[in-house]
């Protein structure tokens, strides 16, 4: 897929909670084809503190309105600046980057998408693509507490949503892997994105149950296009760049 450098216009900046903003961008030219699981490299500004681009998973692509959604969590100077961007501003991005989630084979496969924190971002787009292709995804979303659960209504458009919160303020209490769904049901495919410990726990469950599982990693990146070799992870095929060989990896290939 040809990578483009595009200036997108920020249409809406929606504060979902104290840490998370939904940024909706549109483009004058039509957006290139973007696959579920792919990411963009966003230029913040030219200031010394936010020098490199920042990678973000594509949260959703609205083909009809030529819109691209990014769900950003404020974790540092770059995300803070981006969260303060006003509608109408032009934001420079390189896209689409990375590989994508693998579609299931059969329509009746039991599919679970497990997300935690801002790691839910790519799962909305992936869920929408699965639904559009006549699959029936279900979602398991984990958060610290009710206040940190975002985009639930969006997820509900594409499948049933299960919830865990660490304090029990919504859904079942505990981590995603504690959810009763894992005791009651068997899945053919699990896709996950979120904090590394969460993905490791989900991956361990999948391996134990011999379930197909893909996770999307979030390593710190320099370039996002396979040139700087900074975002590496160890796989059965050696040490590889997450930005080009991933961000989606089959759990069996990761040396976790």
């Amino acid at each position: 897929m040809k990578k483009l450098i595009l200036d997108l216009i920020l249409k809406k900046n929606i504060r979902l909670n104290e840490q998370v903003h939904l940024l909706i961008f549109s483009s004058e030219q039509s957006l290139p084809k973007i696959l579920p699981g792919q990411f963009v490299q966003v230029k913040i500004d030219d200031s010394p503190a936010t020098f490199l681009r920042r990678p973000f998973s594509v949260n959703f692509v609205d083909g009809e309105n030529n819109e691209l959604w990014l769900l950003i969590q404020i974790v540092g100077a770059g995300t803070l600046k981006l969260s303060e961007t006003s509608p109408g501003a032009s934001v420079n991005m390189i896209l689409p980057l990375g590989n994508s989630f693998t579609f299931p084979d059969k329509k009746d496969e039991k599919i679970l998408l497990v997300g935690g924190g801002s790691g839910i971002a790519p799962l909305l787009f992936w869920g929408s693509c699965l639904r559009k292709a006549d699959f029936n995804p279900e979602f398991l979303i984990g958060a610290r507490s009710r206040a940190y659960l975002v985009e639930l209504k969006e997820f509900e458009k594409y499948g049933k949503v299960f919830i865990t919160t660490e304090d029990g303020s919504e859904g079942e209490k505990g981590f995603v892997t504690d959810h009763s769904i894992f005791k009651e049901r068997k899945f053919d495919r699990i896709y996950s994105c979120g904090p590394t410990p969460m993905m490791k726990a989900v991956g361990a469950y999948a391996i134990k149950n011999n379930t197909f599982c893909e996770v999307s990693l979030e390593n710190t990146m320099g370039c996002g296009i396979g040139a700087c070799l900074c975002c590496v992870t160890d796989t059965t095929a050696g040490r590889v760049c997450v930005c080009t060989e991933g961000t989606v990896f089959n759990i069996a290939k990761l040396k976790w």
């Binding site: 010394p48 503190a49 390593n219 990146m221 700087c228 070799l229 900074c230 590496v232 160890d234």
Partner: peptide, 23 residues
């Protein structure tokens, strides 16, 4: 050469530190 283990990059003021290690 496999290079050094992750993490091997850190953004700093007006620059970046890398420790790729000739992968």
């Amino acid at each position: 050469r496999e290079g050094n283990p992750y993490p091997r990059m850190k953004e700093t003021a007006s620059g970046m530190l890398n420790a790729v290690g000739l992968q």
